[in-house]
């Protein structure tokens, strides 16, 4: 058991309750129809298109979350452009952050 500010966390009760929930779900599942789906029912339907060969049906990494990147396109343009990969720029970031921090540390004391 681990105490947190507003309660506790224990993995063992969590695991037990998950197992119980899974068992109940399986019990409910056994109440359903047991007939094997055969014929047209069991076939995949891809908008009427012919079935692709296996290696082409795999969704590659660059296609995943396409919409997310499209929505945040401008943020990603900035973020990738900032990471130039030139070592001098890394030092520029360091020095500018150093200057900003010095300003903050001194200005806060004045206020």
């Amino acid at each position: 058991m681990m105490e947190t500010p507003s309660g506790f966390w224990g993995p063992v009760p969590w695991i037990i309750s998950t197992v119980v929930a899974v068992v109940i779900a399986c019990l409910i599942r056994t109440l359903g129809e047991k007939e094997h789906k055969s014929g047209v029912q069991g076939q995949e339907f891809l908008m009427g298109n012919p079935r692709l060969p296996e290696e082409k049906s795999h969704i590659r990494a660059h296609n995943i979350y396409w919409g997310f990147f499209q929505g945040l396109r401008r943020y990603y343009e900035h973020a990738t452009n900032m990471h130039t990969g030139i070592i001098n720029d890394y030092i520029i970031w360091f020095l500018s952050l150093l200057a900003i921090m010095l300003m903050i540390v001194f200005v806060v004391e004045v206020i």
């Binding site: 990738t80 990471h83 990969g85 030139i86």
Partner: peptide
């Protein structure tokens, strides 16, 4: 040159 020899970025 730091710019021409880089391969890692982004």
């Amino acid at each position: 040159d730091a710019k021409k020899s880089r391969k890692l970025k982004g």
